[in-house]
Design a protein around this nucleic acid. Structure first.
Lengths: 140, 140
DNA sequence: TTTATATCCTACTAAATTGGTAGGATTAAT
DNA sequence: ATTAATCCTACCAATTTAGTAGGATATAAA
């Protein structure tokens, strides 16, 4: 399951991407329209800014705007930022690799092979899920 | 990520499946050979017994044995038992459906569509990952 | 019948994670 | 000067995770 942080982050990013011409957009605006707690969302957007996914403008009429083209921001990146590894097992992630402590034979582990196949498929789809893609899906 | 409970459960089941002719197998034997804390594993096998996935035999030379053919026990079932929903969002699970509180338009949600596609693919693979399949993968 | 070795059952717990909240400082447009 | 934003620090309650402790009960074999 995605954490609420990740879900809220993606929702906020999609909202900003959709309102391309009104950027920057304030936290309070996103909070109201997306039903997300103001203060919690504030901390999420700060993390996105620190990760250089968003830009911020201070002061009146300030807010947040995308710091990259919407087809370069995808769900995999956001999930990794807030929730860490995407895979089912720590021993099949590239970015957060860790051996399973109890593991007897990693190379020959059947569960690991399955987890690896699922990770490959999942990451492929999450990388394809860019803001552009999500906005397109919702334009029906 | 799988919880340790789920991981230990699958490891234990695979171990029991592999030692088909020595059943029943005691918790202490599995605990030693799979590097899993005895008492914790005990509680896990109890849950598997309550879910009718394992059988137990009390007393000396007692232990646990499979309560179904190994090709009918798969990773999806074990994950759902210990970790609950498999999908990335509560709004795309069959068994544990819940609306996202903050959701504005579930039908038209792009993130949901992606989560649904990933769930379909993932569940398909987890259901194919039976004990028989896992044991076969490790017999190289 | 005693002993060894199993499961069964109840209760407890420390640490980490999750999903927030509170309050004020700073910055910038009008 | 006022208004409306972000920025920054600190705190917190509830839940989940990953166990541990200790004894009751059942059964095979000596």
């Amino acid at each position: 399951m995605l954490s609420k942080k990740t879900k809220y982050a993606i929702n906020a990013l999609v909202f900003i991407a959709k309102n391309k011409d009104e950027q920057p957009i304030s936290v309070s605006r996103i909070s109201e329209e997306q039903n997300i707690s103001l203060k919690f969302l504030e901390s999420i957007l700060t993390e996105l800014k620190n990760a250089r996914i968003l830009n911020s403008t201070k002061g009146k009429y300030g807010g947040y705007s995308l710091n990259a083209p919407p087809d370069e921001i995808n769900m995999a990146k956001i999930m990794r930022l807030f929730d860490g590894a995407i895979a089912l097992l720590p021993c099949v992630t590239y970015e957060f690799y860790e051996r399973c402590e109890e593991c007897v034979d990693e190379e020959n582990c059947g569960i690991r092979q399955i987890a690896m196949e699922i990770r490959n498929e999942t990451v492929k789809r999450l990388k394809a899920a860019t803001l552009t893609d999500i906005v397109k899906r919702e334009k029906i």
